[in-house]
Amino acid sequence: MIHSATHHPGFLSPTGVEITFLLVGLATLGAAVVTVTTRQLVHAALWLVVALGGIAVEYLLLTAEFIAWVQVLIYVGSVVVLLLFGLMLTKAPIGHSPDADSENRWVALAVALAAAGTLVWVVADAFRSTWIDVHHGTGQSATKVTGSSLFRFWVLPFEALSVLLLAALVGAIVLSRRRADVLPPAPDGSTAPHGKDR
C-alpha cells in the first residue's frame, strides 16, 4: 500500500496500474474500432463483447468492482445477446456484407476525427496535472458504500428507474407483438404505408 499523497508522481514513472490500464485501454479501443468498421455483422457484436469486457476491467482498475460486475452481467450478458438476437431476427447476412457502411462514411470519419481531436485536446489540457489516488482505501468496500448510498440518498431515482424499466419492458412487448387482427383482413390491397415505399 503506497501512501503517495506528498510526493508528486511524474509522467515518466508509470506505476503498474497505469501500465495495465494503458494496455487494456488499447485493447478496448482496438476492439471498439473493429466493432464499428468490420463488414461482418455478427463479428461486430462479438468484438463489442471484447470492448465492453475491457471497460469492465478498467472499472476494476479504478476500484469500482461492483460496477465492473454489473457491466459484465448486463452488457456482456444480456445486451450483446439481445443484439445478436436482433441480428438474427432481422435476417442479417452471416458472411461478408459489403454494404455495411453507408456512403457518407468519409464525412462521418471527418466528424469523428474532429470531435476526437477537440475532446482529447481539451481533456488533456484540463487534467494535465491531476492524479487519481487509487490506493486511497478506507478499508471499507466500495460496494457497501455504493449500496447504502443508493438506498439512502438515491432511493427516489432508483424507484423511478424501476418504473421506467417496467414501462420499457411493456413497450417492447407491445411493439413486437404481432397484431393478428389488423394484418389478415387486407388480402388484396396493401395498406397505404406498405405500397408506398417498397
Binding site: P9, F11, T15, V17, E18, F21, L22, G25, T28, L29, A32, A51, I55, E58, L61, L62, A116, L119, V120, V123, A124, F127, R128, T130, W131, I132, V134
Partner: peptide, 13 residues
C-alpha cells in the same frame, strides 16, 4: 494513476 488516461480513453471511445 493519471486522470488523463481514463479521460482520454473515454473521449476516444
Amino acid at each position: 494513476m493519471h486522470l488523463v488516461y481514463p479521460a482520454v480513453l473515454a473521449s476516444l471511445l
